[in-house]
Amino acid sequence: MIEARDLMVFYENMIAVNNVTLHCDDGQIVGVFGANSAGKSTLMYVLSGIILDIQRKERMRGGERVTVFSKITYAGKDISLMKPHERAREGIILCPERRRIFPESSVLENLKIGAYLASKEQAKETLDYVFSLFPTLDRLKDRQGGFLSGGEQQMLAIGRSLMAQPKLLLLDEPLLGLAPSIQKDVIRVIKEIRRDRRISIIVTEQYARPVIPIVDYAYILENGSAVMEGKGKELMNNPDVKAAYFGV
């Protein structure tokens, strides 16, 4: 599905992602775990192409120098230089950290904006699906995005990404700031999405414990480097990982 080799990102002289190679097969859920500033979000920006937009804007402003080396193959094609909206058209959809809901639009409108790439039938079908996944959203249809709680916003962000008809869904810290019970809901939904829609998912998180049971394969990032990788269960039983990422 997607294969990213030797990714390197520098912000000025600081290395944010160091020589990471990452792989996600069709229908797999891949986890990327790491502490703050380990490079998780930057990695997501590289995969979704947003980094190219950041790079361009910074260069125009004369701001930070962003250097990116990437070789990404997706569905047999080299997409390293593709713009973010073109990658989205190919089915790579990023559900960003901190959710980035459109605050002035209603829940329904957020979802409709998400359906920019979908055909009319797809949009209608996906809307029903999103509401069946998150009945809460159906109830709050007309509420402004900015007035939703964190958990509701996260549901909306995931729903909005689904509306864009992803083939590869990138979830950047979907559990950030959520109550444990809502975290559980989100995890369950991620699993359901994979089952129902045959979507490959790459999910990042700081705290691995709630996510690791559902991932097929996982990477652990530290200071931008992938220090460890392996099948979900293997990693769970590794004593080093246990100490560092499970809080045992």
Binding site: D53, H85, R89, P96, I113
Partner: peptide, 8 residues
């Protein structure tokens, strides 16, 4: 940027 992520 959020819109960009949705393919706009």
């Amino acid at each position: 940027r959020a819109a960009m992520m949705l393919g706009i």
